[in-house]
Design a protein around this nucleic acid. Structure first.
Lengths: 237, 237
DNA sequence: AATAACTTGCACAGTGATGTGCAAGTTATT
DNA sequence: AATAACTTGCACATCACTGTGCAAGTTATT
């Protein structure tokens, strides 16, 4: 008569829950006002089933925000470059991989209702950005004609625009996002191109983390052949 | 028995109509989903009265969009500078004065429902920007590492961010918006500062238009005392 | 094979918004 | 002063969406 331990959740249910989160992320990235029905249907479930996994809309949003926050925080703490320009570039490059989450955060952040939640979720990332910008202003490697707070907002907006408003399937999309952010931070476009050429690892693979990449990575030029290509693209002469 | 000519609209009614448009512009700039009730109340009218002036929500939005379009088009055709950098700077400076309309256009443009309307309204402005950017790329005064179409989108986003996401009451707000746009167009921050110092008229009063200002305006330095102030503001050393 | 877990569809109540009709009141215009 | 124009408040129908209860069915797990 031992009150039998409650059976653990069924596998299909676990999958469905994850499917909802994924579908919701995509749906909300596309339209912040996406209805519960839309989300459930795009996850292949009925509206009613969704309420079996999440108490209400807020609970669902909260988990989505948390998921984004976790990824963002990892990225923020992964960037340890001393050079502010390089740090900012790498940060953007890594964020670019999380385009969907960036878009969701941006979308939800527009809503006054969840401003607090997103704010809390983005706090560590914003703090990291502020630190980088401050460092760059102190040593003169970033623009000093704008106070740090304002610059942070502008850089954030530039990154958001470059990540979410540019076709992510373009081969140069990632490089473009990075160059955009650096531009906003005060560099001329030629300087951004030069910086990326000098640090090819920034646009490289997942960087250090999963696979052990000791120190300076020498041969990571697989995904992106050469920056020069995309950098010169569109030049008239 | 001549079917008497219908009396012309009452003066207070005309004022109220204008008041609604103005209130709606402000309300929607603040929240794209602002309800009819909110708008009417903030115009000092009842919800019911609003429907006496506009058939439905769309009719109201259409007029707001048109009002913005008219202002934008005037600005676009007012900018005639040959130098692409100067033209872009002046365009931004003039747009900055229409912050509320810029914000409304940006807000509504996010909505799929009115995407067509805003697109049509912004078309001439976008065309002007594209022309300026193309010119700048041809003579090498603007960045050539991005194709014109993408660059246009990025510049537009940068301008939007600088105009709507920065406290417009700050004395350097206008200058900041211009420098931001130029940064996105490829200039280094020092180049943007230099350009504004070389062309103080860009941040000056309403420029040519109402009052006759023959040729090169010598004494227009009223509204903005000196660019050097704001440009150097925030510099650490 | 038995059981608990999960999903579905439907009904239902509640909310907030839109757009309209109408009677009664107020106000600009002639 | 008369009149048409305008505003208001209320009632009403409609719509889209949220969140819950429940019975009946399907499916993973033991």
């Amino acid at each position: 008569m031992t009150t039998s331990a409650p059976r653990r959740p069924r596998q299909d249910a676990v999958d469905n829950r994850a499917g909802i989160l994924s579908a919701a992320t995509a749906a909300i990235a596309h339209d912040p006002q996406a209805s519960i029905n839309t989300i459930a249907r795009s996850a292949g479930l009925s509206r009613r089933a969704l309420y079996g996994h999440f108490a209400d809309r807020n609970a669902l949003l909260a988990e989505i925000i948390d998921a984004g926050a976790e990824r963002f925080n990892r990225i923020a703490s992964d960037v340890t470059d001393t050079d502010a320009q390089v740090a900012l570039a790498r940060l953007t490059s890594l964020l670019w991989q999380q385009a969907a989450h960036v878009q969701v955060a941006a979308s939800i952040a527009l809503d006054d209702a969840h401003l607090e939640a997103t704010g809390k979720a983005l706090a560590p990332l914003r703090h990291a950005v502020a630190a980088i910008l401050q460092r760059g202003q102190n040593d003169g490697t970033l623009r000093t004609d704008v106070d740090v707070t304002t610059l942070a907002r502008l850089v954030e907006e530039a990154a958001r625009a470059a990540i979410t408003r540019v076709d992510a399937t373009l081969p140069e999309a990632r490089s473009l996002a990075v160059r955009t952010t650096l531009s906003m931070a005060g560099l001329s476009w030629r300087e951004t191109v030069a910086l990326l050429e000098a640090h090819p690892d920034i646009l490289g693979a997942p960087a250090a983390g999963d696979v052990a990449t000791n120190g300076t990575a020498p041969a990571t030029a697989d995904a992106t052949p050469a920056t020069a290509d995309t950098a010169t693209a569109g030049a008239k002469r």
